[in-house]
């Protein structure tokens, strides 16, 4: 049986280019990751900052044996955004599609479907696979029962589940970071760069609830499926997605690898993940079919 792979999703936050480059260099050198999805997917205004370092990062990752995928924007609406996404297809890398607008461009060639495309069932999956999808990341809100039904209906593709990191919950035309700072989106002054893991939104009781990341809203909790990983593999999941944060992602990746390979007990690894990511509150509610904020 093919072993379960680990995918590192794209950095969702506005990190300075040198931090972004150094993060990926360390991933290349140290992390037991198989696929690395790369590129700015949340806000096209951030894309120019990464352009200079992108080739070096790709080279380093590939030299280390990682498969690099280029991720498309989650919500392209402008023509320049469509042009940017269209160019991704021209390269030699597999593209990860994060919006349906990219499907015509990748049709007939191998591609990946990212977690921002609504694949809720085997009917949709079958259609996408017939057009060349090979690696499909399911929406993070899907419960285990749906994951199992999808995996058993179409066993020949790689099905990936959102397994670590703040969970993307919504995307908007409005920039909440700019709104928090009293700016408009067009003159945002890139204030999202102040919050490397997102800006915390608390309830009026002072309870941390969500984070905003430009036009994106994510959970305050970090999804953590270390204790669910082997069960997911048993029902047919063949890849787990880890989403980058400022905590020790190399350590997190190693914990997932160790649990999948049976080298480490899941409960023990879960405890260790607290050390690797000390400020995080963990959740796995979506997978268990309850409120996503809960840990079951």
């Amino acid at each position: 049986m093919k072993s379960t792979t680990l995918t590192l999703g794209p950095v969702l936050f506005n990190w300075p280019a040198d931090r972004w480059r150094d993060f990926y260099f360390r991933i290349a050198d140290e992390a037991p990751i198989d696929h690395v999805c790369i590129g700015e997917v949340v806000c096209s205004k951030r894309q120019p900052f990464l352009a200079d370092v992108l080739p070096d990062v790709i080279e380093r990752l590939e030299h280390a044996g990682k498969e690099v995928l280029l991720s498309s924007l989650v919500l392209p609406t402008l023509r320049r955004e469509a042009r940017h996404d269209a160019e991704l297809v021209n390269g030699r890398h597999m593209v990860e599609v994060n919006d349906v607008s990219m499907l015509p461009a990748v049709a007939g060639r191998p591609h990946a479907i990212g977690p921002f495309v609504n694949v809720y069932n085997e009917g949709t999956l079958e259609f996408l696979v017939s057009r060349g999808a090979r690696l499909i990341a399911l929406p993070p809100e899907l419960p285990r029962s749906s994951i199992e039904a999808i995996c058993s209906a179409i066993p020949d593709v790689t099905i990936e589940v959102w397994a670590f990191g703040r969970t993307p919950l919504a995307i908007s035309a409005r920039c909440y970071h700019a709104r928090l700072h009293g700016h408009s989106k067009d003159s945002c002054q890139f204030v999202c760069d102040q919050d490397a893991d997102g800006a915390v939104v608390e309830t009026l009781d002072g309870e941390p609830f969500l984070v905003v990341n430009g036009v994106q809203t994510l959970s305050h909790t970090f999804c953590n499926l270390l204790r669910d990983a082997n069960d997911l593999v048993n029902i047919g999941v063949s890849s787990l997605r880890l989403s980058p944060h400022t905590c020790d992602m190399v350590a997190i990746a190693q914990l997932y690898r160790d649990v999948l390979d049976g080298r480490r007990d899941a409960d023990d690894a879960f405890l260790s993940s607290r050390d690797a990511c000390p400020s995080a509150t963990f959740a796995n509610g979506f997978t268990h079919g309850v409120a996503g904020a809960l840990y079951v």
Binding site: F116, P139, E141, T167, A170, I171, T217, F286, G292
Partner: peptide, 8 residues
């Protein structure tokens, strides 16, 4: 493309 409701 919104899971805010199911998150809560």
């Amino acid at each position: 493309r919104c899971s805010l409701s199911s998150y809560a």
